[in-house]
């Protein structure tokens, strides 16, 4: 009887891959805990991502509406002409941000690791 059979190698590989996946998912994807909202360069408010809410931030052009839901955040509406920050959609990972330049408002997810940008 051989100690290691072909299927064992397959099961071991699968287990090792599971390990890698779990390490990636639990250790490198640090979940964001808070959201900082900036207006005109100054911190307007730092809010928790644990509570679903809508925030109206007054800027030079009007109100930027920030929405927090299920640990994610997005710019829901903004008076800027091109709507880039609204188009960015939901932000989920620490370090991600959305900037509404004309209205001088930005949101950033704060967490352990902050990347300037992520591309896939």
């Amino acid at each position: 009887m051989r100690l290691i059979r072909p299927g064992d190698v397959a099961v071991f590989t699968l287990a090792a891959l599971t390990c890698g996946l779990v390490v990636w998912a639990c250790w490198t994807q640090s979940p964001a805990r808070t959201l900082s909202i900036r207006q005109g360069g100054a911190l307007w408010r730092e809010v928790s991502l644990l509570h679903n809410a809508r925030y109206h931030v007054a800027g030079p052009l009007g109100d930027t509406v920030v929405r927090v839901e299920d640990g994610r955040a997005r710019i829901e509406s903004d008076p800027s002409p091109r709507q880039y920050c609204v188009g960015q959609g939901w932000l989920e990972h620490a370090g991600q941000s959305a900037i509404c330049l004309p209205n001088a408002t930005s949101i950033t997810l704060e967490g352990a690791r902050a990347y300037d940008s992520l591309s896939f």
């Binding site: 100690l3 299927g7 064992d8 099961v11 071991f12 287990a15």
Partner: peptide, 18 residues
């Protein structure tokens, strides 16, 4: 119930550990 020829104690032990 897996094939004993292909899967040995190492497989079962890993499955049990997980």
């Amino acid at each position: 119930r897996l094939s004993r020829r292909l899967f040995g104690p190492v497989s079962l032990s890993l499955i049990a550990a997980y």
